[in-house]
Design a protein around this nucleic acid. Structure first.
Length: 425
RNA sequence: GGAGACGUGGCCGAGUGGCUUAAGGCGGCGGCUUGCUAAGCCGUUGUACGUUUUGGCGUACCGUAGGUUCGAAUCCUACCGUCUCCGCCA
């Protein structure tokens, strides 16, 4: 959510930001509701002030054994008006809130203006292209030969997009998750948490999944909860409705979770293998920072995610999203893309975003310094560090050998208890 | 799933319709005292919104939402949460 005062004062600037984000939305109804709201508040509060004073007089008279019926009659009338205005105010409040929740975050001044993802500038590339002298296989061919996963069985159990990892494939998945968690906690100073994979409406609203993207999620109507599309949701809501100490900032968590996405509207796109799934595993990084520090924290967050890819020795590039490609809640975002030699294409494995105070305002996440001052909204950031399916694709395809076996990077050996995945004898 | 108890400020805890703009204590902050520390003494204390001449002023907030009443922390209803016991269960 944006600051209503900012919308009131810098209307043109906000309107331009919305436009740059490729969103069609008129701020006039918002300003109108805001004006109405303040008018009603002024009126109803002065009536309440009067009522309080008269009630005090009633109490005084009764204590002295005097007749107060005249005063009582007066407050009765005021009370009726207050009730009407309170009801009207509730309606306008609700209307304003509904409108406010629809407004996207606006891009940071440093974000290049653009409408199409093809305009996203590449800000960095790292690593060496895998170009062996034998015919490259795709992850699907490799996985089948090595018995790492079984999509048919996953489909039988749950449906398409719910993979079954098998044998050394299951172990490799677990190894990757453990490697990444250990890396971020030991080398980057994140605190590990293991969150619920269900979240309620309130939490989904904080991070921006609701109210606009309800159809993208799996809902459990019986209990009014949703399966999380990312650990960002539960982890950001750890501090929902809290006032943190400025001295404790930045707070940084890393979390493994399964993620669930309906991917409505994307049928037919990337349906093969691990490229697009309904359920997948991800290690997520989440930061709560002082507003002054959030942009340096974004660079550091991105580096933390990059470090994983570098430790695994995989070729990747970093792109910066143009304004029109930014997600609803983001003010600035980098994507990390791995090169998958078998697929011969770039695969997004991480999005690192700064949400500034957009989520913090929705979730009432604030901080206060010890030496006085008002509570202020924190800035929240998050990034994948990283998601496993496409990581697995790039890893298998990059480290494949001529005979179809996989020679794994050294850092995974302790987690796999082996240096590679070889064909069954 | 059944039965019961309970939700008051950062924490503990009083408060059964009006002298409660929530007592008292702990903690925090500021000051005094002090060779230092401890102790003591004095003062102070949250959030949001509206308004403002930026000094303030006003309104709301005792789990949440409604209701009764001239007036609600207090009475009524529903819901949520916590705890205890029973049942079920990894």
């Amino acid at each position: 959510m944006l600051d209503i005062q900012r919308i009131r004062q810098d209307t043109d600037q906000v309107q331009q930001g919305i436009k740059n984000k490729n969103v069609t939305l008129d701020l006039d109804p918002v300003l109108e509701a805001d004006k109405q709201r303040r008018e009603i508040i002024a009126e109803v509060e002065s009536l309440k002030h009067e009522r309080n004073q008269v009630s005090q007089s009633v109490a005084e008279k009764k204590r002295n054994g005097e007749d107060a019926s005249e005063l009582i009659e007066r407050t009765r009338t005021i009370g009726g008006t207050i009730k009407e205005l309170d009801e009207k105010l509730r309606g306008v409040d609700e209307e304003l809130r509904t409108l406010m929740l629809q407004i996207p975050n606006i891009p940071h001044a440093s974000v290049p203006v653009g409408t199409d993802p093809s305009e996203n500038p590449v800000v960095k590339t790292w690593g060496q292209r895998v170009e062996p002298d034998f015919q490259l296989m795709t992850h699907l061919e490799l996985g089948e030969a090595l018995g790492l996963f079984d999509f048919a069985k996953g489909t039988k159990i749950a449906g398409p997009g719910f993979p079954l990892y098998t044998d050394r494939g299951a172990k490799l998945e677990r190894a990757l998750i453990n490697f990444m968690l250990d890396f971020h906690t030991e080398k980057h100073g994140y605190t590990e948490v293991l969150p619920p994979v269900l979240a309620n409406t309130r939490s989904m609203t904080t991070t921006g999944q609701l109210p606009k993207f309800e159809d993208d999620m799996y809902k459990i109507p019986q209990d009014d909860v949703y399966l999380i599309p990312t650990a960002e949701v539960p982890v950001t809501n750890i501090h929902q409705e809290e006032i943190l100490s400025a001295e404790d900032l930045p707070i940084q968590y890393c979390a493994y979770s399964s993620c669930f996405r309906r991917e409505a509207g994307s049928y037919g796109k990337d349906t093969r293998g691990f490229l697009r799934l309904h359920q997948f595993n991800k290690v997520e990084l989440v930061k709560f920072t002082h507003p002054d520090d959030s942009y340096s924290a974004l660079e550091a967050l991105r580096q933390d995610a990059e470090d994983i890819l570098q430790a695994l020795g995989l070729e990747y590039r970093v792109i910066e999203l143009v304004t029109g490609d930014l997600s609803f809640a983001a003010a600035k975002c980098y994507d990390l893309e791995l090169w998958a030699p078998g697929e011969a294409r770039w695969l997004e494995v991480s999005s690192c975003s700064n949400f500034e105070d957009f989520q913090a305002r929705r979730g009432a996440i604030r901080f206060k310094s010890k030496d006085g001052g008002k509570a202020q909204l924190v800035h929240t950031l998050n990034g994948s560090g990283v998601a496993t399916p496409r990581l697995l694709v790039a890893l298998l395809e990059s480290y494949q050998q001529a005979d179809g076996s996989i020679l794994l990077p050294d850092v995974l050996a302790p987690y796999m208890g082996a240096t590679g995945i070889h064909l069954a004898p």
